[in-house]
Amino acid sequence: MSAPVQTASLTAPALPAAAAPAPAPAFERSPGYWGHVGRKLLRDPVAIGAGLVILTIVAVAILSPWITPMDPYRGSMLRRLRPIGDPTYILGSDELGRDMLSRLMVAGRLSLFMGVTPVILAFLIGSAIGIVAGYVGGWLNTILMRTIDVFFAFPSVLLAIALSGALGAGIFNAIVSLTCVFVPQIARVAESVTTQIRQRDYVDAARLSGASSFTIVRVQVLGNVLGPIFVYATSLISVSMILASGLSFLGLGVKPPEPEWGLMLNTLRTAIYVNPLVAALPGLAIFLVSISFNLFSDGLRSAMEVKE
C-alpha cells in the first residue's frame, strides 16, 4: 500500500524533500466552504457595514425595555409633536406627546419580529416543499409546483392584505398571512436549486452506493441547496418588514398603543404637514433595516459565489 502510484515513471527522482511531509504527519484540515464564505464576507465592507447596522438595531430592540430614555407609552398633551433636537425629546415627540426615540427603540422589537418570523417559517416550509418537489420530480413536482404557481397570480401585497383581512387583525394572523405569501416564493427557488443539484453526478454516485432517497437528500443535497435558499430568504426579510408595516399601517397587524414602525407611520400621518421630519422617522427606520438586510444578502450571495 506504500508504493507511489506512478509505477512506470521515467525513473524520476522523488519530489524535492521540501514537498515531502514529516514522517508522522498531522492531518490537514481545510477551512471548508463556509470558512471561505466567511473570509470573503469579512473582506466586503458593504456587507460588514450592513451586518453591523442590523446587529445594532437588533441589540437596541432587544435591550430597549432597559435602555429607553423615557417611557414609550406615557404621553403628554402639552408636548405633542416636538421637533427633532428638542432638549427633552432628542428625536421629537409624536402626536400624543410620547418620546419618539423610546418608541422607535421599542417598536423595533415587534417590527423585527414580524419581519423575520414569517421568513423563517416560510424558509422551513418552502424549502421542504421545494426540495421534495425538486428531488422527486415527475408528477409530484408538477402537482406541487402548479399549485404554487396559483399563488403567483396575486401580487404579494394584495395577497397579504386579503389573507390578513380574511383571518382578522392581530399579530399572529399577520404572521400567518405573511408566511403564506413567502412560502411559494421560497419553494420555487428551492425547487429550481434542487433540480439543478439533482442532475449532478455526485447525486448519481450516491444513488449507486445504495443510499435511500432520504439519506441522499440529507447528506448530499441539503448542504448544497440550503445556502442559496438562505440567501434568497434573507433578501425577503426587507420585503417582509415592509409588508408587516403595511399591514399594521392598514390596521391589520399590530394594534395601538403597541409601538410598531408601520403603525407609527400611520398614526403620525396626520402630522405630516406639521412636523414632517418626525413623521418620517419610522419610515426611515424601516428603510434602514430593509436596505441593510438587502445589502447583507447581496454580500452573502457574492461571497457564496466562490468556487465551490
Binding site: R200, D201, Y202, V219, Q220, G223, N224, E308
Partner: peptide
C-alpha cells in the same frame, strides 16, 4: 466530469 461527481461541500 471529475468535478461534478464529487460533492463540493464534503471532504
Amino acid at each position: 466530469d471529475s468535478y461534478s461527481s464529487l460533492n463540493p461541500r464534503m471532504t
